[in-house]
């Protein structure tokens, strides 16, 4: 076992990990159940989290790599009581069916909108192209991201955590 320090959704974490443990397993052990195990081969994007603000695959990232870095999961964006505008946009657009891909979709969308608040539909498609949805297709997901982007430009993102 080894001890690492990192920042999880803005809070300091000092925890024991196994040296060969994957970040996906560590985050779920810490209660971050939005982080999903889909394929564990880096194909599906369900395990996406942000490392220092950039999307990565937590299923192929050694937990030890979190040491000294900032990790953001969906729990860090919003809660059921206080959802993030992206979560509200996904609900409004009906962009959720089973919900398994949704955390990863929202995190890559969050990353896109953090540096491009006015994306074209093609730019949204490119941003989510590494995240697979097996229920609904992608039309409503793209709509949701475009809606959230419009809200952001209109100053309706009340706060940023």
């Amino acid at each position: 076992m080894m001890k690492i320090y990192f920042e999880l959704n803005g809070e300091p974490v000092y925890t024991e990990i196994k040296p060969g443990e994957m970040l996906l397993d560590l985050l779920r052990r810490l209660g971050m159940k939005s982080v999903k195990e889909g394929c564990r081969t880096g194909e599906c994007g369900a395990c996406t989290v942000l490392l220092d603000g950039k999307p990565i695959r937590s299923c192929l990232t050694f937990a030890a790599k979190a040491k000294g870095h900032r990790i953001t999961t969906l729990e860090g964006l919003g809660t059921p009581e206080d959802p993030h505008p992206l979560q509200e946009a996904f609900l409004e657009a009906g962009a959720v069916q089973c919900g398994f891909c949704t955390p990863g979709m929202i995190l890559v969308a969050y990353h896109l909108l953090s540096h491009n608040p006015d994306p074209s539909p093609d730019e949204v498609r490119a941003a989510i192209s590494g995240n697979l949805c097996r229920c609904t297709g992608y039309v409503k997901i793209v709509d949701a991201v475009l809606t959230a982007a419009r809200w952001k430009r209109e100053g309706k993102w009340r706060k940023e955590r």
Binding site: G42, G45, T48, L51, K54, P55, I56, R57, L60, T61, V108, A127, S129, G130
Partner: peptide
């Protein structure tokens, strides 16, 4: 090559 979240790693 691959997708953004893999290229970041």
């Amino acid at each position: 090559v691959a997708t953004l979240s893999l290229r970041n790693m």
